[in-house]
Amino acid sequence: MIQLFNVRKSYGGVAPALLDITFSVKKGEFIFLTGPSGAGKTTLLKILYRTEKYDRGQVLVHGMNIGKIPDRKLYTLRREIGFVFQDYKLLAKKSVFENVAFAQEVIGADKKRIRFKTWEALKNVGLTHKKDSYPPELSGGEQQRVAIARALVNSPKIILADEPTGNLDPEISLEILKLFEHAKKRGVTVVFATHDQEMIRSRKHRVVVIKRGKLVAP
């Protein structure tokens, strides 16, 4: 599902942000992407999502050579991927329901489908009772669950999560992790970036470790 070959990325500093990264993720697999702060986890996820370009190597996502996708066609890649951000990226002026529905609206889904899929996604994350609330009225854990519902509402084949539990306490973090594992059970490929070693140890998912831009344990 995801394949990286000798990927290198530099921001112009002395040491490259990523150096010769090669690994793959199978369809329906759940992996933890870990490493200390500044190791290159976010850069790697941004490359997979093509918000960053890489300097060298090759990246295949769902059979697409993402380096060759023109900017105007990037939406074709992004519709295959659900991205969950550490800072949630919810729109404060839209309600919970509207935030999740927004992901459906931007791909041009019809109203009936939007209502049905949004309700289903909110049900999966247990937030139907908060559908009319606005993000600032929610707790961190609830906001992250809305973000996950938004990432899942378009039934993506891949979920990329950048430290989705970084701002949450351990109990809530576990709940969030379970939501991603639930998605995996439905056949979604999940790349879960975290530096929470306790969480990683508590599960039996494959772990990819990056340190100073280099792959340590594939």
Binding site: R78, K89, A103
Partner: peptide, 16 residues
């Protein structure tokens, strides 16, 4: 700006 950036991130076409 935030909304436009989000739209790009979640798969909106430039024309949309």
């Amino acid at each position: 700006q935030e909304e436009i950036e989000l739209m790009l991130l979640i798969g909106a076409t430039p024309n949309f």
